[in-house]
Simulated scan of single mutants.
Amino acid sequence: MDAINWGDAPTWLGAVFAAAAAAAAVWTLKSQRDQIDEQRVFIAEQSATLALERAALLDAAGDRRRAQAETIQWDTTESGMALILTNHGRSPVTDVAMEHPYRPIELCSVWGSETGDSRRADFFGLRLDPTMQPYAVLGSGKQVGCQQPDSSDPVVATFTDDAGVRWRLDQHGKLDEVPPTP
């Protein structure tokens, strides 16, 4: 038998180690790709979860934002001669104004037996004292009113809540946010 050609053995050993290194590099790349794919799936799931949480938070914020405005309600007197806007909430609203599409409305502060203050009541148990529009602050439990117009068109009240959002409430209870004016 012939002797091993040592000149070729180191070349073969280098080739075997190079092949092993190439296989390890391919395995590492595949492993990294698998990790990246897993991370993409995780990030997609996380993004979907965050989108749902954000939507829920926005809904909750919208509900909280609207909650104070929903405590402002219209009432009518027993005689039906006056409309009363009452703040049933804990926080005051500001810049309260009333308007009618075709007739001027005189905003009035409300006094009388229906409000628990009988010292200024008139014959009907209620007194409407004219006041300036907009009414600056309508505190918790306070009322403002106006005479009921002879028209079927609703009286509309506008007011600003404690978050600075302007609202529109018609006599039938329809509540809308007023878009801010630039």
Rank of each mutant, 00 (worst) to 15 (best):
A51Q: 11
C108A: 14
D170C: 03
L126M: 08
G141L: 00
P149W: 07
Q148V: 12
D170E: 02
G139H: 05
Q171L: 07
F159L: 00
V26C: 01
T71I: 13
K174F: 09
T86I: 09
P10R: 08
A121D: 05
D162A: 14
D161E: 01
A136G: 04
S113P: 12
F123H: 14
P101A: 14
A157N: 05
A21W: 02
K30G: 12
S79I: 03
Q73V: 12
R127E: 08
W6D: 07
A23L: 15
D129K: 08
P180E: 13
D129H: 14
N5A: 04
A9Y: 09
R65N: 07
R54Y: 10
T77P: 06
A25V: 02
R54G: 11
A25P: 00
E99P: 00
E38V: 06
R40G: 11
S91E: 12
M98F: 08
G145P: 06
R65T: 07
D153S: 15
P134M: 04
I4Y: 06
E38L: 08
I105Y: 04
A44V: 03
W6E: 10
I84A: 01
T71L: 15
G112F: 09
G145Q: 04
Y135M: 04
V144Y: 01
P92M: 04
A121Y: 03
R127I: 05
I4T: 05
T77G: 04
T181R: 11
T131R: 05
M81L: 07
V26W: 14
A163H: 09
V41L: 14
I105A: 03
E45R: 13
K142H: 08
P10Q: 12
S140W: 13
A22T: 10
P180S: 13
R168C: 06
A21M: 07
E106H: 02
M81Q: 11
R103Q: 11
L58R: 07
Q148P: 01
Q133R: 13
L83M: 06
V144A: 11
D122T: 15
A69I: 00
T181G: 14
R127M: 14
L107W: 04
G89M: 08
W74T: 06
E70R: 15
L126Q: 01
V137Y: 09
M98K: 03
S31Q: 10
V16R: 15
A163N: 11
E177M: 06
E78S: 15
L57P: 00
V41Y: 04
S113Y: 09
A48D: 07
T94C: 06
T115W: 02
A136N: 08
Q46D: 08
C108N: 05
D170N: 14
P101N: 13
S79E: 12
S109D: 06
S47N: 15
R120D: 13
Q73K: 12
A18L: 11
A51E: 08
G7R: 12
C108M: 05
D75P: 01
G80D: 00
A97G: 13
R65D: 09
V93Y: 01
A22Y: 12
P182A: 11
K142F: 06
W27G: 15
Q133D: 01
E106K: 09
V156K: 05
H88A: 03
I105G: 00
R120C: 11
V165N: 06
P154G: 04
P179L: 04
T49M: 14
E114P: 02
A9E: 15
R168P: 02
M81I: 03
S152D: 15
